[in-house]
Amino acid sequence: MVILGLALFIKGLEMGLFPIGESMAYAFARKGSLFWLLIFAFLLGFGTTIAEPALIAVADKAATLAAQAGAIADTDESRSNYAYWLRITVALSVGSAILLGVLRIIRGWPIQWFIIGGYILIVIITGFAPKEIIGIAFDSGGVTTSTITVPLVTALGVGLASSIKGRNPMIDGFGLIAFASLTPIMFVMIYGMIVV
């Protein structure tokens, strides 16, 4: 059953998700409207993250932790409130990550400067963030990118990089997922600092 599911998934990937991601990338490149492309990138990141089941689970655990640490009142209402805004925070961070990543592909900026800059920022923020949130923040970077988002976003990036002149799909097309796993770490720690 696992194997059957995986086979169906891969078949569907090649028939459905890869072509639509690429054809949309080409269509946006032809239309030449940067504004709409960026809105699309943001919504794609935001929309896929807000409904992510793994994120909902992590947010609930984080709320329990914060309540135990005395950061928020230990009631159901304040906990669900905390978890809700944490989810919004992560979704916002993924949305802006995809937006920034798409902008990077279009402009052809080298990825390492963003990632290294992001890491340095994270390291600095880690020094100030409350201890309880650090583990959750680092984990939330990993859980935000679901099985459906990854193929679609990869196809979008590669499609964009191959439809724009002077971009190498190998060098420029990948990297969207990396952005999407980096920003939640930052945003969640900042969230923990503000709320505590």
Binding site: M1, G5, L8, F9, I10, K11, G12, E14, G16, L17
Partner: peptide
């Protein structure tokens, strides 16, 4: 073709997850 592909993806993933939950 794309819609059929999407249906494949959804069903494939669901099969995969149920199988994992049951066995692994």
């Amino acid at each position: 073709k794309i819609l059929i592909g999407l249906v494949y993806v959804i069903f494939g993933l669901a099969f995969f997850l149920v199988g994992l939950e049951k066995a692994l």
